[in-house]
Simulated scan of single mutants.
Amino acid sequence: MTPVELSRTVLHAVRRAVEQGELSVTVPERVVVSEPGPGGCGDFATNVALQLARPAGQPPLRVAEILRPYLVGAEGIRDVVVTGPGFLNISLDEQADVAEGVVRDILECGGRYGYGSGLAGEVVVLRVPYEARAEVVADAVVRIVGTQGGRCEVEHGEPVNLRPVPAPEDPAPLGADAAQWALLHPAPHDRPRITADHLVQRESNPLFRVRYAHARVRAVSRNAGRLGFSAEPGPVPAREILTALSDYPRILTAAATHRGPDRLARHLVTVADAVLPFLPTVLPRGEEKPSAAHRARLALAEAAGTVLAGGLSLLGIDAPEHL
């Protein structure tokens, strides 16, 4: 459950309490959920009871106790504890053991995470035309098929069985990495764009987002080291990232089976877009001391960085430490 989803769940609990006549308030448009403060517990906390106490004409603790049963019964919530003047501390049922296992598996496997044996013993013959994009795609397919235990032989001649739409012009002026991305990211039936858009250092450029996400993960890891703590897998309520990381082996298998490096490229964008908003939460802020939660977040971030680096390598693209 993401913070946005949890916020909606809290609002739904308020709405149900109003409908049942237990609270007499106007349901707010939004509520804030954040990390529990000092004395708090669980995955998230909300001050919605304090927010509603005055209009409800009741003490915050009473409002919190009214809302608690509606939250405890909601899907995805394991427990709710009231602390302090009326904070609702929410523990999520995130299948933490599974999430922790995925992160631990990635960190242990490193760049080989997602490798399998589905194509073990299989020899894949790729017949390609003498054309730049076909050559680049075939080269990436060789590496990707290898991750699933298969082996490729690349030939030139008829009948051609790997013929992506050719590039409209020579991609070499873009430089090695951008040229690779320009030819591999589009689906085989789409004509690739050979433009300077692949070089711009901004969020509109998918290649930049993927490489920037990896560089930011590495920077966060370096800063964590300076603060004296390291990664340790643990429960982290970050479903979007965990889903993207869990899906990576399936995507890699599909890319190998369907000879489609574009599937891998697009999934790396998904991983990057999931992890970038998460990174500012990894390091302690101000006088805050590193905790188990910070170590778990760092582990998740490093797992995402591992997947990004491994995927880029399979596409023949550099994963920079600095960007």
Rank of each mutant, 00 (worst) to 15 (best):
C41G: 07
C41V: 15
D43L: 05
D43N: 11
F44A: 06
F44H: 12
A45P: 06
A45S: 15
T46A: 05
T46Q: 04
T46K: 00
N47P: 01
N47G: 15
V48G: 00
V48F: 00
V48E: 02
A49W: 07
A49F: 03
A49Q: 13
L50M: 14
L50T: 02
L50Y: 09
L50D: 10
L50K: 04
L50R: 06
Q51A: 12
Q51D: 13
Q51P: 04
Q51C: 03
L52C: 11
L52H: 00
A53E: 12
A53Q: 08
A53I: 09
P55W: 05
P55Y: 05
P55T: 09
P55A: 01
P55S: 12
P55C: 02
A56L: 04
A56N: 03
A56M: 11
G57E: 10
G57N: 09
G57P: 05
Q58Y: 07
Q58A: 14
Q58C: 06
Q58G: 00
Q58W: 03
Q58V: 13
P59E: 09
P59Q: 10
P60I: 01
P60L: 06
P60K: 03
L61F: 11
L61M: 14
L61W: 13
L61I: 13
R62N: 12
A64W: 05
E65V: 02
E65G: 01
E65W: 12
I66C: 07
I66V: 14
I66F: 10
L67V: 12
L67Y: 11
L67M: 13
R68K: 15
P69S: 11
P69H: 10
P69N: 13
P69G: 07
P69A: 10
Y70E: 08
Y70S: 06
L71G: 09
L71V: 10
L71P: 08
L71E: 12
V72Y: 01
V72H: 05
V72C: 10
G73N: 12
G73W: 04
G73K: 14
A74W: 08
A74R: 13
A74M: 05
A74T: 15
E75W: 05
G76F: 09
I77C: 00
I77H: 01
D79Y: 06
D79V: 10
D79Q: 14
D79K: 11
V80G: 03
V80M: 06
V80E: 01
V81A: 14
V82K: 00
V82S: 07
V82H: 03
V82T: 07
V82L: 01
T83E: 12
T83K: 04
T83V: 14
G84T: 00
P85G: 01
P85R: 03
G86D: 06
F87V: 11
F87W: 05
F87D: 06
L88F: 04
L88S: 09
L88V: 06
L88D: 09
N89Q: 03
N89F: 05
N89P: 05
I90N: 00
I90V: 14
I90Q: 00
I90Y: 00
I90L: 00
